[in-house]
């Protein structure tokens, strides 16, 4: 990694690996098929055109030192769904903090019948296993906290220098209840959590996060709804950097939530309402419970969105809130 972009001859690499030049050639071909940009061939020497932005465990682990996510990172080039893999692993006893991250998902999952388009190495598709000592009712706020964590990570990526001038895009970053991330009103990140619990005790929660990072375009039918960081900023971004920031941020939120009891929840609710333009005074359409419209009126003590309708105050239980302005 340190000498990532120097030219290394096939012979030298073969010597260092204790193998043959033809074997090196075979390995290089394999890397190229995985999306690693390598120039040259065994006669002239190989050169990495750029350090590959792959979400490898070896790359992520050092960046996550000190968090609960550092020691059990599972990376896949291609997978059905990271949430599904994490749920199955958790059922089989995978420890708290296990991370399942993929370059490509062929059956990425969203809410209800929605999928999550997961083009190869353009987005972040990551699920984590948590085993909080909380009741199912108390764990709900974790989905709001994850949204806040993702928001903080993106802010950090877009404007790493707090003293510097904020890029315009950072101010366009919004959080839509419960945890969609929007840039200029279009969604670029979503979170789907799955829980297995007994009546009073959570066995495990899997929190799945999908972030559109470097997608250059979207299908026509999604163009009005979906976007990526690249589309909104005009730049490509390091997925490694963003995922590391996200997991560090989630680690902080999660620990705070476990440690400080009701105070932790109140903090999440307060910060959510500060960060999200959807919490208060937004005209929305709610898909819940048959569908209705109204104006948002803050979160209740449990974190549910309240909506003032012509028929009085209603509480949104599930997702499916859309802005109408």
């Amino acid at each position: 990694m340190d000498n990532a972009t120097v030219v290394a001859s096939g012979t030298k690499i073969a010597q260092e690996l204790g193998t043959t030049r033809s074997e090196v050639w075979r390995l290089v071909q394999q890397l190229r098929r995985s999306g690693v940009d390598i120039a040259g061939h065994s006669a002239t020497g190989y050169r990495l055109r750029k350090v590959p932005d792959l979400l490898l465990a070896e790359t992520l682990a050092p960046l996550l030192r000190g968090t609960i996510f550092a020691s059990h990172i599972h990376h896949y080039f291609k997978i059905g769904s990271t949430n599904l893999a994490a749920m199955e692993a958790a059922a089989g006893g995978a420890p708290e903090g296990s991370v399942f991250v993929a370059e490509e998902q062929v059956a990425g999952r969203g809410r209800g019948a929605h999928g999550w388009l997961s083009a190869r190495s353009q987005g972040i598709y990551c699920s984590v296993v948590l085993r909080p000592a909380l009741s199912p009712a108390d764990v709900l706020v974790l989905t709001l906290a994850t949204g806040l964590a993702a928001c903080a990570a993106v802010e950090q990526l877009l404007s790493p220098n707090p003293a510097g001038k904020k890029p315009a895009t950072a101010s366009q970053l919004d959080l839509r209840w419960p945890n969609d991330l929007l840039l200029n009103g279009k969604k670029f990140a979503g979170i789907l959590a799955e829980l297995t619990a007994e009546a009073t005790r959570v066995r495990y929660v899997v929190v799945g996060m999908g972030i559109n990072v470097n997608q250059p375009s979207f299908l026509a039918e999604l163009r009005d709804l979906a976007t990526s960081l690249r589309l909104e900023t005009g730049n490509c971004w390091s997925r490694v950097e963003l995922l590391a920031a996200l997991l560090k941020s989630l680690d902080r939120e999660y620990r705070a939530l476990l440690k400080s009891g009701p105070g932790g929840r109140e903090s999440v609710l307060r910060r959510f309402q500060e960060r999200s333009s959807f919490a208060q005074g937004r005209r929305v359409r709610v898909e819940d419970d048959g569908g209705y419209e109204g104006v948002t009126a803050g979160l209740d003590a449990r974190g549910f969105l309240q909506v003032e309708t012509v028929n009085g105050l209603r509480t949104v239980l599930s997702g499916g809130v859309r802005g109408m302005d």
């Binding site: 809410r111 709001l144 945890n179 979170i191 789907l192 007994e198 239980l317 599930s318």
Partner: peptide, 13 residues
């Protein structure tokens, strides 16, 4: 049971 995009699988006990 879904709440806040958290899907809670209810198991038989």
């Amino acid at each position: 049971i879904e709440a806040m995009k958290l899907m809670n699988e209810i198991e038989c006990d």
